[in-house]
Each structure stands twice: as C-alpha cells, then as structure tokens.
Write a protein that binds this DNA or RNA. Sequence first.
DNA 1: CGCCCGCCGATTGCATACACTGGAGCCCGT
DNA 2: ACGGGCTCCAGTGTATGCAATCGGCGGGCG
Lengths: 209, 209
Amino acid sequence: MRASERAYATLLDEIQTGALPPGTVLGEVEQSTRLGVSRTPLREALRRLASDGLVAQASARVTVVAGIDADDIRSLFDLRRALETEAARLAARRGDHEVFRALASEFADLDTADADASYALIARFDSAIDDAVANTYFSAALRSVRTHLVRVRRMARYNPLRLSASAREHRLIAEAISGGDPELAAHATHVHLHNALTTILEALTEDPS
Amino acid sequence: MRASERAYATLLDEIQTGALPPGTVLGEVEQSTRLGVSRTPLREALRRLASDGLVAQASARVTVVAGIDADDIRSLFDLRRALETEAARLAARRGDHEVFRALASEFADLDTADADASYALIARFDSAIDDAVANTYFSAALRSVRTHLVRVRRMARYNPLRLSASAREHRLIAEAISGGDPELAAHATHVHLHNALTTILEALTEDPS
DNA sequence: CGCCCGCCGATTGCATACACTGGAGCCCGT
DNA sequence: ACGGGCTCCAGTGTATGCAATCGGCGGGCG
C-alpha cells in the first residue's frame, strides 16, 4: 500500500477511535516520524483529513484534530436528514426490492445484544442504500456524513436499548423500501434519525466527555 | 499566495470554463511546467481536484479531467434537490427574514438580460442560504454541488428565457423564506430545480456538445 | 506469421534538502 | 518596570533527486 494511504488510514482510525483526541496538535515532522513515512505522504494524508473535516487549522501553522460538540452533532444530523430521507425515497423507487426484503428480515432476527453484529448489519444496509440510489455524488455526500458519524457513535457509547429500537426502525425502513413506498421510507427514516439524535444528545448530557 | 493554491485555482478555473475539456490528460510534469510550480504543490492541487470529483484516474498512472454527461447531471440534481429543499426549509425557520425580503425585491427588479448580474445575484442568494442554515457540514455539501454546477451551467449555455423564469422562481423562494413558510420554501425550491433540470437537459438534447 | 517475453522509457511515489514565514522570547530603551 | 522591536527558531511550503512500477515496443521463438 502507498505510504500516504497508510498514513491516512492510520490517522483516520486514531481520530475516529479517540486515540487522537480533539485538540491534539498534528505536527508534520512529529507525525511523519511516528508513522514512519516522510513528510510528503504525511502532508497528503493531513490534507485529506482536512477536506474530510476531521482536522482543522487552529492557526496558520498548527493543525489540530477537530472537536465535535452537541451543536456539531445537531448540524450533522440536519445534513443527515436531508440526505438520508431523500436516499430512502430514491431507494424505494429504484432499489432492488428483494435485497431490502432480505435486510428487513435480518433486522427482525438481529441479536441486538451483539453490538458489532448490529453495526455490521447497519453498514450493509447503508451499502444497499448506496447501491439502490446509484448516484456517485449522493454516495460521496453520505460517505462524508458517515465518517463523522463514527466519532459521534463512539461519544454516545453503546446502548442496548437504543440498538434494539434502532433495529426495529431499520426494519420498517427496509420494509417500506422493499414495498416500494417512498414516502413511508422517507418518513420512517426521519423518525429513525430523530430518535437517534435524541438518544445521542441525552447520552451526552449525562456524560459530556 | 501559496503555489499549491494558485495551481488549484488555475486548474479549477480552466476545468470549469472548459479550457481543459473532459478527457484531457493531466501529467504532473507537464502541468507543473506549464503553471510554473514544482511537482509537489501541483500534486496537492490534483488531489484536491480529485476529491472534488473534477478529475478522475483513468488508469493507475494517468489522471484526466472528469467528464459529465446527462446522467451525471440527473444524479447531481438528485443530490441538489435533497440538499436545497431542506436548506430552504431550514432557512425559512432560522433565517433573517429581512435579508430574504430584500433579496426577493432584488429578484423582482432584476434585469435578466444581464446574465452576469443575474448569476451574481443568485450567488448572493446562495450565500444568504448558507448564512441562514448556519451549518458547516451543510455548507460544505452545497459548495461541492455548486462546484459541479458551474460546469453544467456552461454546458447548457446562456438562455434568457430560462434566466427570467429562474428569477421569478428565486423570488418566490425568497418570499417564502422571508415569510417564514418552510414548506412553501422547500416546494418552491423543488419546482425551481425541476424546471432548471428540464431546461438543461433540453439544451443538451438540442446541442449535445 | 503471430505470440510471448524481456527491456527501456516515461511517470508517479517518496524522501530529503532548502527557503521562507510567523511567532515567541529577550534585550534595550524609556 | 513595562513596552516595543529585534532576533532566532520551529515549522511549514517548495523544489528536486532517487527509486519503483507500469506500459509499450521490439526481438526472438514457436
């Protein structure tokens, strides 16, 4: 793999998992030494992270890991709502109904005690949406949102009750898509996002780490 | 200004105006020589353009200016509809009503024979939407869409009749926002985008350059 | 005569050296 | 003692050299 991509993948993971917490200063020399690449590929990785919105320029010469607070999360969910409700509509019109019927039944059978399995199924659902929408611009916008969402999920931590409710909501969305009902798919997505956001903000209020 | 930024700005402009038509091969050495910068900042510019979606990797070693066809335009408008209808909703709820009242009156008085003035006013309207939405994630997504839209507008060329209809549509959107009517703002935006897309696709059918 | 293999050139990826700039800290003057 | 300006330096921005790789082309072999 290319050095620049390794550096990007490593930094991305470290930022998403919180190993590099918000505010961490990312000096080019320091990070290139640490990751064992030269400054050239490291700079490229930093620029990609900046365009992703995961790092920010604290001043002209210092780059830091971007912070994310409750207002950011609300903003992110505004965008997410715009994208995902419309994506659900498009999927209901264009998608392969059989794929979503199968996903609906997987959500019905999902063991939500297994957080990893749950997130894996949600990831497959997201992929199915991407395939159904079949729109590279849309998928790029969704990918960006999901990149940020990884950090938000981590901040809100694992919540078994929410995961179980989320599975039911996903099931309904998948059924609406497989049934070819765009408005139900869109509104069920809206409801799902509302519930997700509420839970996350509550979790942050209790534990504003 | 930094060399990398000059290179990016120059290439962006040349791609948007069509000076570098789709399919043009962008060799690093060739372009860096032409623009009078070294390969390092030029590479950075190319990577930014790639993440913008304006250049693509034709193969592992050759980068070309990305093409854009009717299907791409439909895809772009799918995304645009998702973003702008919701942005209009948010603006109607959060925006400064006075700003949009003023914009509505400017659209009413606009001389649509002056294409540059028309596009300038539309740009100010877009800025006002950004300010009203006050959401950096949303604005970033909108900026990306608008970057592509510059090329689309150019492909569809100047059309006085459409510009005049567009001004009326913008006026209605601005009035809906200033009147605090989110659904009217969203639906008027939907109508506007539908008309814009239809006109563009017709223009392309007549003259598929 | 056609196909496959190996060589060569072109081009990118990476590393490193040099240039420049912004800022912190210190010294001097008041 | 405090403020201003100067100096030095840390760190980024840019240029260039080197290495690796891919594709094309020609020659040899079947």
